[in-house]
Write a protein that binds this DNA or RNA. Structure first.
Length: 837
DNA sequence: GCTTAGGGTTTG
């Protein structure tokens, strides 16, 4: 058998000048010799066949004929030898096109090669990561793992008599060998140590480290910080590792690129680091990365797959590494020095606890300059009520609301200071682990809280405090990690998903299917008309074709609605001048209060008022109480009604809100030109418990005047407004609904009868969380987030069409839902007695 | 250009 070939032209010239010694491994049948090892630098040339054409890996195509082709590549990953049957094996390896241009598209440069039978066995012994191989006689098959490994969409299959694999070993670069480095595994089997000539990496036990050398180490992670921005040019990772020597060694890794940092997810993970330097700091050895640094991390669970976590394009990993990892795993498992796992689901969160949370990001929004809100879930439900956080409108990334069922599972995480920058790069949908998260019970001092919530103290808030102490930080977990796989299973158990957009096919289905045919599998009608019209329902296309004006009865589904954020639907309406205003946000109002308290000069209150002081307790234990100037009606005082109505001066918005719990009516006042005056009417002119009332700037002639309380049982907002000359603004709800039936879609308003439709008063919705929740529940029932059509109930609506002028003065037809009430699900009735409608 | 950080008794 002549196995010596001349040097072939297809071989790159830098190697063709090398005489290659052909050394068949005579371990199998002599007539089947599929793996040839070509060693550099000795003996007469042994070569691969010259009659074949080389095909670059990216050009491999399933439909082409490969019978006269060969493929050359560098082994970047070598899988384990798998036994299929008694003497049948399979081995998967990944090879990478060697001569690819650095700037060429990196796509499909690497391909899975599957070796069968004796070839797998031979390559397992003869081949190593870093070798250059040439394959011929292969077949091409579709790769089933392309989604996961992102490699070439084809696999090369090497089996049968035609298949050949030539292994060429270049002289590897010398590895920095520390004089102190000694072999970790003295018990290495002779079979393994004999089979390869590639210099092994040597790993120094942590107990043998001496300062002033460059070494390779393995260790179990006992502490870690996610990479954080240093003051220099790099990100910095901090870890502490240990091994069987029980030494705990601190490591500091500086790398500019995040992907070069160790991918550590939890304590107990195992790291292998190449080329770290040892140095003394604080009387102990520490490790710092140095030139050529590389790190690979592994999960620390005993019995789990040994999957290297690295972003290196190639790295050495062999059976010995696998063994080292497994030894460290079982050693660590036998130790009690690892702290207990603090990764817990939301369902197990205890108040005040610090913990690590593995979760999915659903939405995020900036809260203020120090803090970002992350809305996350892990599929479990925390038994405690979770804090609700309001953010400024239109700043939420991701859906701004979810189904009520899903909302119950969502934790609001406030991420502070340095973590904001990282949070800024997160995207809804990302899988995260948040480290050293704090569960804070009854937090009332949270930015963005609504006034109604500040009184409810039993909420759990989640804070990721600033700084990196205790490993505080956030990590995005890769999709294929076991922790994400586990999380996904938990999330998939929850049927709801919140994708608002409908696919084209879903739209087509909606548009082309008559409502009748959908009835069978959809939710039944959930609204009731209370009008007295006697007319048959018409389709939306008929509505659109109708003459302007008039009333229609329709049967429709709610396709979408705006705004999703309730506070944007709430408006202030002046029945006198018909102007509609947004409700000012707390920041604006607070500014008006502080402005008013600044120009409080001396002033003489009107004679019917008596002046005094009211003590405002400090807003935190130990802080100073504040005494504020307060004025009471002499008449009310003489009747002993000291809580009925006070005029309060110099208070902040927050103080006024707090005092409102103790007084029926509070009118904030200021000093203006020596007289008592009301604040600017952009601020509430009256606080009644949780409710705030506003006046119309245009229609009011406001002044501090005495309300006539004679014969009046309860001083309410109408009496106060009338006395003060304030034109009271009504709270109204205004929403834009997109309706659909089989024929068309139609945009309509929900306004004049919004309270009737939603069975909630706007005034309550402005002040009361239950009322807000009820509206969300109703809208979610009518238009389940993420639901295409199946879960959407059909609505019997009464619709009024009318002409209105748009901004340019053109007349257009508008529609409003009227005299209709949602009947299912029955929301908790929160209509107040004082119905402004 | 060759530093950066070097866990820690936990703010909102």
């Amino acid at each position: 058998m002549d196995l010596v070939f001349p040097v072939g032209g297809f071989y790159p010239c830098n190697e063709s000048s090398v005489r290659l010694d052909f050394k068949p491994k005579i371990t199998g049948h002599l007539d089947v010799m599929p793996v040839y090892v070509l060693s550099e630098g000795a003996g007469p040339g042994a070569q691969v066949p010259t009659d074949l054409t080389r095909i670059p890996i990216p050009l491999i195509d399933i439909s082409a004929d490969h019978s006269n082709k060969l493929v050359k590549g560098k082994v970047i990953c070598k899988g384990p030898l798998m036994s299929l049957a008694a003497d049948d094996f399979v081995l998967k390896t990944v090879i990478q096109e060697e001569d690819s241009q650095p700037d060429a598209s990196s796509q499909n440069q690497s391909i899975n090669v599957v070796l069968f039978g004796a070839m797998a066995k031979h390559f397992n012994q003869a081949g190593s990561q870093g070798d250059v191989v040439v394959a011929s006689g292969f077949t091409v098959a579709k790769s089933s793992t392309v989604d996961e490994d992102k490699l070439h969409p084809c696999n090369l299959l090497l089996s049968g008599d035609d298949a050949c694999l030539y292994v060429s070993r270049l002289t590897p670069l010398p590895d920095p060998i520390s004089p102190l480095a000694n072999k970790r595994n003295a018990t290495l089997s002779t079979e393994v140590s004999r089979r390869t000539k590639v210099p092994k990496y040597t790993y120094v036990p942590l107990g043998d480290l001496k300062a002033g050398s460059v070494v390779n180490v393995y260790g179990v992670v006992v502490f870690f910080k996610q990479p954080f921005k240093s003051r220099g040019t790099d990100f910095c990772s901090s870890l502490k590792i240990t091994d069987q020597s029980n030494q705990k060694i601190g490591c500091t890794i500086f790398c500019e690129k995040l992907e070069d940092h160790p991918k550590i997810y939890q304590i107990g993970d195992i790291v292998r680091m190449h080329r770290v330097k040892t140095q003394f700091f604080n009387n102990s050895i520490t490790l710092v990365n140095t030139f050529g640094f590389a790190v690979v991390a592994f999960d620390g669970a005993v019995g789990g797959a040994v999957e290297p976590r690295t972003s290196s394009r190639s790295f050495h990993f062999d059976q010995e590494d696998r063994r080292t990892v497994e030894e460290l795993r079982s050693w660590a498992a036998s130790q009690t020095l690892l702290p207990p796992v603090c990764t817990i689901p939301l369902s197990a969160v205890q108040p005040k606890a610090y913990f690590d949370l593995t979760c999915q990001l659903l939405a995020k929004a900036p809260v203020d300059t120090t803090c970002t809100l992350l809305r996350v879930w892990d599929g479990t439900r925390c038994p405690r009520t979770l804090l609700n956080v309001m953010v400024e409108r239109d700043v939420t990334e991701g859906p701004s609301s979810f189904s009520k069922a899903k909302e119950k599972l969502i934790a609001n995480v406030l991420v502070y200071d340095n973590h904001m920058e990282f949070a800024g790069q997160l995207k809804p949908g990302d899988f995260l682990r948040i480290y050293n998260l704090r569960a804070i019970p009854g937090s009332s001092k949270v930015p963005g809280l609504t006034s109604s919530q500040s009184e409810e103290v039993d909420h759990l808030a989640f804070h990721l405090h600033g700084g990196t102490a205790y490993g505080r930080g956030i990590r995005v977990l890769p999709e294929n990690s076991s922790e994400v796989q586990e999380l996904k299973r938990a999330l998939e158990a929850f049927p709801d998903n919140d994708e608002d957009a409908l696919s084209d096919s879903e739209l087509l289905e909606i548009w082309s299917t008559p409502p009748e045919s959908l009835d069978g599998d959809t939710v039944e009608c959930s609204s009731e008309r209370s009008c007295s019209h006697d007319m048959r329902p018409v389709s939306l296309s008929e509505v659109k074709r109708s003459d302007p004006g008039g009333i229609h009865h329709i049967r429709v589904q709610l396709r979408s609605y705006k705004p999703h954020r309730l506070h944007q639907a709430l408006k202030l309406y002046c029945s006198k001048c018909t102007s509609m205003l947004d409700i000012p946000d707390d920041e604006q109002v607070a500014a008006l209060f502080s402005e008013a308290s600044r120009d409080s000069g001396p002033c003489s209150p009107p004679p019917w008022l008596l002046s005094g002081w009211v003590d405002i307790p400090g807003d935190s234990p130990g802080s100073q109480n504040r005494a504020l100037s307060v004025h009471l009606s002499a008449q009310l005082l003489s009747e002993g009604k000291t809580k009925e109505l006070i005029f309060l001066m110099g208070s902040t918005l927050e103080e006024t809100s707090r005092l409102a719990a103790g007084y029926h009516n509070i009118v904030p006042v200021k000093s203006s030109d020596g007289h008592l005056a009301l604040l600017d009417l952009s601020a509430p002119f009256l606080f009644r418990g949780r409710k705030r009332f506003y006046g119309c700037k245009r229609c009011s002639e406001a002044a501090v005047r005495e309300p006539s309380a004679e014969g009046v049982q309860v001083i309410d907002e109408k009496i106060v407004a009338e006395a003060l000359g304030v034109q009271l603004l009504q709270f109204v709800l205004l929403m834009k609904l997109e309706l659909q039936d089989a024929t068309d879609t139609l945009n309509v308003f929900l306004w004049r009868d919004a309270e009737l439709f939603l069975n909630v008063s706007a005034e309550d919705a402005a002040a009361n969380q239950e009322a807000q929740k009820s509206i969300h529940q109703t809208m979610d029932a009518l238009c389940p987030p993420g639901d295409s059509k199946g879960g959407r109930p059909w609505l019997n609506l009464c619709l009024s069409a009318y002409q209105a002028e748009d901004d340019e003065g053109r007349s257009q037809t508008c529609y409003q839902i009227c005299q209709t009430t949602v009947t299912r699900p029955r929301p908790s009735s929160t209509r107040s007695e004082a119905d402004p409608a």
